[in-house]
C-alpha cells in the first residue's frame, strides 16, 4: 500500500494527463468549435462573428499557448461553455452529478441486498436448490442487457400495473426502477464471486479454530468468514464501480433520468464537445477517487495490513 504523499503526487500527474487528453479531445474533434458554438443558434453566421469569437476564445494564438491557457483554466475548474445551453460546463455537470451519484448509491444498495444474502446462502447450502438458483441468476444476469431488463420492468411495473413512474426523477419512487435494474445486473456478478470467496473462507483453518472455541455459528459467519471473504469482493468492486458508472449512462437514458450520463449522451448526439470534455474530466476524477476509496476500505476490513509485520 502506498502512502498519502505518493498518492497525491500520482493524482496531480493524473490530472495533468487528463487535462492533456481533454485538450487533445477538443482539438481532434471534427468541425470547428467556433462554428459549433455559433451554429447552435441556428442563424446565419457571418465571417466577422466567427473571427470575433475566435479571438475571444484565444483560438488565434499558437497551439501551445492555447494549451497553457486552457490548462490554467482547467485547474480552476473552468471547462468552457456548453454549445447548447451556453451555460458553463462545470455548472451543467455539477448540477447533474448528484442525481447520478444518488442512482449509483441506490443501485449499490439493491446490489448488496440481493447479492449478499443470495451469495451467502448459496455458499452455506452448497449444491442445494438455492445454489442452483444463484447459478442461474448469474448466468442470466451476464446475458440480459440491462436496458432490456429495464424495458421489461417499465412495461410490467409502470405500464401494466401502474405502480411506479417509468421516467424522470423527484421522489424515491422514481429511483426504484432504475436502481433495481442496475442493481440486479450488478448483483449477478457478485453472487458468484461472494459464493466462491465464502467457500474459500469456510475452508480456512482459522474458521475451524473459531468454531473450536465454541463461538456461535452466526458469530463465526459474520465476524470471521464473511469479513474474510470481502477482500476479493472489494478488489473486484473497485473495478466494477467504474463499470457501474458506465452502466448508469444506459439506465439514465432509458428512464429519462436527468443525470450526468443522460447529459453526455445528449451532448454526443448534438456534438456539444465541451460537455463531453467535462464528462471525461469528471469521470477521470471519480474513477480515481473510487480507487483511493477501495484502497482505504482494504484497511477497514484488514486493519493488520497497516500495522506491518513484526516478524
Amino acid at each position: 500500500m502506498k502512502n498519502v504523499g505518493s498518492r497525491f503526487l500520482e493524482f496531480v500527474l493524473f490530472l495533468l494527463v487528463l487535462s492533456f487528453i481533454s485538450f487533445a479531445f477538443i482539438k481532434l474533434a471534427p468541425g470547428d468549435p467556433v462554428m459549433g458554438m455559433l451554429k447552435a443558434d441556428e442563424v446565419v453566421v457571418t465571417e466577422e462573428q466567427v473571427d470575433k469569437l475566435r479571438e475571444e476564445l484565444g483560438f488565434d494564438k499558437p497551439i501551445y499557448l492555447q494549451y497553457i491557457n486552457w490548462m490554467l483554466a482547467f485547474f480552476q475548474f473552468d471547462l468552457g461553455y456548453s454549445y447548447m445551453t451556453k451555460q458553463p460546463v462545470i455548472e451543467e455537470l455539477f448540477s447533474r452529478l448528484p442525481s447520478t451519484l444518488t442512482l449509483t448509491a441506490t443501485s449499490l444498495v439493491v446490489m448488496i441486498v440481493v447479492a449478499f444474502p443470495l451469495g451467502s446462502l448459496a455458499a452455506i447450502y452448497r449444491n442445494s436448490w438455492i445454489d442452483h438458483v444463484s447459478r442461474l441468476f448469474a448466468l442470466l444476469g451476464a446475458s440480459i442487457p440491462s436496458f432490456w431488463l429495464g424495458l421489461l420492468l417499465i412495461h410490467l411495473v409502470a405500464v401494466q400495473l401502474d405502480l411506479l413512474p417509468s421516467m424522470g426523477m423527484g421522489t424515491w419512487k422514481h429511483l426504484l426502477l432504475p436502481s433495481v435494474t442496475l442493481g440486479l445486473a450488478m448483483a449477478a456478478v457478485y453472487v458468484r464471486i461472494l459464493r466462491s470467496s465464502l467457500l474459500d473462507s469456510f475452508g480456512q483453518d482459522f474458521i475451524r479454530a473459531a468454531k473450536a472455541r465454541g463461538l456461535s455459528r452466526k458469530r463465526v459467519f459474520f465476524h470471521h468468514a464473511f469479513r474474510h471473504s470481502l477482500l476479493p469482493v472489494l478488489t473486484i468492486f473497485g473495478v466494477s464501480l467504474g463499470s457501474l458508472l458506465g452502466g448508469t449512462v444506459i439506465i439514465e437514458v432509458l428512464f429519462a433520468y436527468p443525470g450526468i450520463g443522460k447529459l453526455v449522451v445528449d451532448a454526443i448526439l448534438k456534438r456539444d464537445y465541451p460537455i463531453i470534455q467535462g464528462y471525461i474530466f469528471i469521470m477521470g476524477i471519480l474513477v480515481t477517487v473510487i480507487n483511493l476509496g477501495v484502497d482505504a476500505s482494504y484497511h477497514l476490513v484488514h486493519p493488520e495490513l497497516k500495522r506491518g509485520k513484526r516478524r
Binding site: F25, G242, S243, G246, G247, V249, R271, I276, M283, G284
Partner: peptide, 21 residues
C-alpha cells in the same frame, strides 16, 4: 495501463462521442 484505468463502457462512450454516432 492507461486504457485499463478507465471502465470499458465510459471509454467507448467518450470515443464514440469524439467520432460521432
Amino acid at each position: 495501463d492507461a486504457f485499463m484505468a478507465f471502465p470499458d463502457f465510459i471509454v467507448a462512450i467518450v470515443l464514440s462521442g469524439l467520432l460521432g454516432p
